[in-house]
Computed example of a mutant assay.
Amino acid sequence: MIHHCVRLTVKPGVDAARLDEALESLRRQGEVIPSVLSYLVGRDFGGEYEWGGTYVIEDLKGYWEYLVHPAHRRTDELGLPLVDKFVSYDITDDPDPDMGEKIAALHRRRYAQDPELARLVGGLGGYEGSAAPGPHGG
């Protein structure tokens, strides 16, 4: 099982309606992507981030489905332009010692297949986590 988690802060002055639309899109991807077994999107307390989401996915095949699903891509289009700092990370009970690299490879593959997504991620003020340093290597 893989728990894919994201945490983010928004840029100062972001319109509340645009933020609500992006957060609703995060929720929608949890509802419509078949490989997502459960999800939670909401306020993030206890650190420097404002919002977060967690998606439970069974395996790498499902993780890839999640990454490339149109609902996830729509969230990227709506949300990434609003984001200042972003972190994604994964928690898994899979005993494979190479699981972290396999997850990172899926992210790199996604960036390679979607130059516009790579541009959006490259424009973030800060990015850490599963696919860091991101599509541009830094």
Rank of each mutant, 00 (worst) to 15 (best):
M1H: 11
M1Q: 04
H3I: 11
C5N: 13
V6K: 01
R7P: 00
L8F: 13
L8Q: 14
T9W: 03
V10S: 08
V10R: 13
V10H: 00
K11M: 07
K11G: 05
K11F: 05
P12R: 13
V14Q: 13
D15I: 10
A16T: 10
A17E: 11
A17S: 10
L19E: 15
A22D: 13
A22P: 04
L23M: 12
L23D: 04
L23K: 03
L26F: 12
L26K: 01
L26D: 05
R28C: 10
R28W: 10
Q29G: 05
Q29F: 00
G30N: 06
E31P: 03
E31F: 12
I33Q: 03
P34A: 10
P34R: 14
P34T: 11
P34F: 11
P34C: 10
S35I: 08
S35T: 12
L37N: 09
Y39M: 10
Y39K: 08
L40C: 11
G42I: 05
D44G: 04
G46H: 08
G46D: 07
G46S: 00
G46V: 08
G46N: 05
G47I: 09
G47D: 15
E48L: 02
Y49E: 06
Y49M: 06
E50V: 03
W51P: 01
T54I: 15
I57Q: 02
I57C: 02
I57D: 00
E58W: 11
D59Y: 01
D59K: 00
L60E: 02
Y63A: 01
Y63L: 12
W64T: 07
Y66Q: 11
L67F: 09
V68T: 15
P70K: 10
A71R: 07
A71I: 14
R74N: 13
D76A: 13
L78Q: 12
L78K: 14
G79S: 10
G79W: 00
L80D: 07
P81L: 08
L82K: 12
V83P: 00
V83W: 02
V83L: 02
K85C: 00
F86D: 04
V87F: 05
S88R: 09
Y89N: 04
D90E: 15
I91P: 03
I91V: 12
T92M: 08
D93G: 12
P95W: 13
P97C: 06
P97G: 12
D98S: 15
M99E: 13
G100V: 00
E101N: 13
I103H: 02
A105H: 02
L106E: 06
R109A: 14
R110W: 05
R110D: 04
R110T: 09
R110P: 01
Y111A: 07
Y111W: 15
Q113W: 01
Q113R: 10
Q113C: 04
Q113Y: 01
D114E: 09
P115M: 03
P115R: 10
E116T: 08
L117C: 06
A118V: 05
R119A: 11
R119L: 07
R119F: 01
V121D: 02
V121I: 15
G122V: 04
G123C: 15
L124K: 06
G126C: 07
G126H: 09
G126Y: 06
G129I: 02
G129Q: 08
S130V: 14
S130F: 04
A131R: 12
A131E: 09
A131Q: 07
A132N: 04
P133V: 00
G134I: 01
P135Y: 11
P135H: 08
P135T: 11
G137T: 07
